[in-house]
Computed example of a mutant assay.
Amino acid sequence: MSSPNLRFSVANTAARLQTSYLERPDSIEGTEARRILAELRKSAAREFGTDPLALQLVLSVLTPTLSEGEIGRGDAPSPSESAAYYALTLFAAHMQSATTPAHTEDRSFARACGRLHSISDSASLKPRFDAMQTARDETSRLLHLRTLVSLLRNKKLAFDYGAFAHDLRSLQNPTRRDGVLLRWGRDYAVGMLRPSQQDEQLSDNEPTDLPAASS
């Protein structure tokens, strides 16, 4: 059985689509990237499972494909399939009318939210992030995530969609959920610091190799 592949696959796919969309808009690749992102955005507006073609689209776009251990076997999507679906549909929403990257491996999702807090005059951002953290179910959490991604898009703040997909998969595991949310809370606080202070925190607070999760 091949090793888990979700994080790399989502990051590589986001980078490929982003490069074609931003740097080669008039090429065949750019046209195809716009089409794929538009289809993914349509899926983002629907509840997962209501569109039978949505998962098929996500799995067909992923390059490389998910590993054998991450692909579902039955009638329900696997945790990795769900995570890839939500990460890429949110990425597509983030890329709507974009002129700058939405995906970067230099900043985590929560750190991007902290950075948004530091440059925003909105008093509602921290309560939104807290509501996402304390959501009682995944449907509510994803609703808050969509709002936060929209706010990040408005301020042209990118984050690592590969690591984000990994975290979305871990959030489906009750034994790992609290650890992810704790790390997100820490990253949010670090993101609020000045860039020089963030550099001092990086080695202690951001693991370089996230542990693999099954399926």
Rank of each mutant, 00 (worst) to 15 (best):
R46S: 05
F109N: 02
S2K: 03
T134N: 10
S118Q: 11
D167Y: 02
R153D: 09
L88M: 10
R35F: 12
P64D: 01
R73G: 09
R73H: 05
L22W: 02
A93D: 11
A38H: 06
P79Q: 11
L66N: 09
L17K: 00
T13F: 15
F8Y: 10
L22K: 00
P207F: 13
A135K: 09
L210D: 07
T65C: 11
F129T: 00
S60I: 00
G162F: 08
F8N: 09
L143F: 13
D204C: 09
N12I: 00
S60T: 12
A213D: 15
R111G: 14
A163S: 11
S140V: 02
L142H: 14
T13A: 10
R73L: 04
M1C: 05
N5P: 04
V61R: 00
R128Q: 06
Q133C: 07
F48E: 15
T139S: 15
E68W: 03
R34I: 12
F48G: 06
Q96Y: 10
C113V: 14
A45D: 02
A45T: 02
G74H: 08
L37M: 15
S140E: 13
P211T: 01
A213T: 04
L53P: 00
S9Y: 07
L145E: 10
N205S: 10
D51G: 04
P52Y: 02
L62W: 10
P101G: 11
A112D: 10
P79N: 11
E23T: 03
G191M: 05
P25W: 03
L116R: 03
L152N: 01
Q197K: 01
A44H: 07
A92D: 09
T139H: 15
A84N: 11
R16K: 06
N205Y: 04
S214R: 07
L40G: 03
S124Y: 14
L210T: 05
N154L: 13
R115P: 06
L151S: 01
A83K: 08
S118V: 07
S124Q: 12
Q198Y: 09
A98R: 03
V61Q: 01
L148S: 05
P174H: 10
Q201C: 13
E206V: 04
A84F: 07
T208D: 11
R183I: 08
T134F: 14
R73W: 03
A110S: 10
R169I: 00
T50D: 14
A135G: 11
Q201E: 14
R136H: 08
S82P: 00
F159D: 01
I36Q: 13
